[in-house]
Design a protein around this nucleic acid. Structure first.
Lengths: 220, 220
DNA sequence: TTGACAGGTGTACGGCGTACACCTAACGTG
DNA sequence: CACGTTAGGTGTACGCCGTACACCTGTCAA
């Protein structure tokens, strides 16, 4: 059962899989080495240090983002691309955190941003408006989506009810919203909130606002 | 020169200051103890572990956010509050990262979110719309603002020019935007981009879109 | 006086990233 | 074929980290 030789490729892919499994904060060079059936220092022949490993992992995720669609209006193209990025980041929950904690964006991230800007520019938006828009999109550009509630309720019913009423006392508005969301949602399980819908809702507010500004600029 | 006795308060404040100084990733229990003139284990009489320390640090920052204004329309109240949160997070750049990396939001964060939801609800927005809006605001609720370019150019002019043209080759749109921004800006130094303006621009796109949806809901 | 307790100390353990010296097998070149 | 180079895996070791645990000491209520 000879182990195939390591390579930067193999190391990065294993690191991504391991981070998916045990979480990014538990990922260590030593565990990764063990996973690959190798001594820790062997990894350093393929990545210069852990930071470069993290950068490489980000690049693996960025490569999963679909290229921009051609032959459509800028708005749909942007929309598609951002939703594709969102999918990639949702597959690897640690990714946004790593991207944002990195000192400098990796070239792959820069490529993504550049092509995103390109979609606005070739769509006819001015440089200035595009600039504002990139800021407006903020982390949404990278498909970020946070989950506020873990909704992990392994407690018994009484405890849960008690927790619920304590919650309602302390955070009335959060509770009201959570209840409304869970009633609205047809499914019984889950957070009672369609994340995909929420994400697109927010995205569309931004895109609509941007389109409005663009039209106003053209008319003026 | 007797050292005043420790307290959770003092520990947390020192931790915040130290994180501001040396960065959150370099903050360790040992360095914090040293800063306080105490042995590392002494800290554990005041915080149960490092995670609780981080939570406490977040609470210190949350306490710096102004309470919501009273007697104004919901939109200005939300605007003010978010801008105040932004100021707090800008004073401590590590804060967003810590907040987002924490498994569960601290009570102080929950309080903030609850009161933010309250602003929308008492302003007359429906529970459903408010729910969508909170998602739409996303990380902007917490005043998040990222800086893409460090703009740290300690290299000599030739190198800088070379780097610039390499950059323009590889990331044409980013470069175009960066140049436009630096020409627009009246000041010579800095990133050539008024972060505060960009933040408010984005915030207003969202708030305007939300107000439009709200008016439509009332009219319908 | 005493006993509890709050708060600071010292030692120790296991895990981390990684520097450095080493080994070994494959290979291009004479 | 012999041989130096080199790519890639190994072993040891260092200094840092969080923190468990036993201990000490000063204060104060009973």
């Amino acid at each position: 059962m000879a182990r195939p030789p390591l390579s930067k490729e193999r190391v990065l892919r294993a690191a991504v899989a391991l981070a998916d499994d045990i979480g990014i904060e538990a990922l260590s060079m030593r565990k990764l080495a063990q996973e690959l059936g190798v001594v820790p220092m062997a990894l350093y022949k393929h990545v210069t240090n852990k930071d470069e490993l993290l950068d490489g992992m980000v690049d693996v995720i960025m490569a999963q983002i679909d290229p921009p669609a051609v032959g459509t209006d800028w708005k749909s193209a942007v929309r598609q691309r951002i939703l594709s990025a969102r999918q990639a980041l949702l597959r690897h929950r640690w990714a946004s955190q790593v991207i944002e904690s990195r000192a400098a964006p990796t070239p792959a991230v820069m490529d993504y941003l550049d092509s995103m800007i390109g979609l606005f520019r070739t769509g006819g938006l001015s440089v200035d408006l595009t600039h504002h828009v990139m800021h407006a999109m903020g982390s949404r550009i990278l498909g970020f989506s946070q989950e506020l509630f873990d909704d992990s309720g392994p407690a018994n019913p009484e405890e849960q009810a008690a927790a619920m009423s304590a919650m309602a006392q302390r955070y009335p508005y959060i509770t009201e919203m959570a209840i409304a969301a869970s009633h609205t949602d047809e499914s019984v399980v889950g957070s009672g909130c369609d994340d995909q819908f929420e994400f697109e809702f927010a995205l569309d507010i931004l895109l609509d606002g941007i389109a409005r500004l663009h039209r106003a600029a053209m008319a003026g």
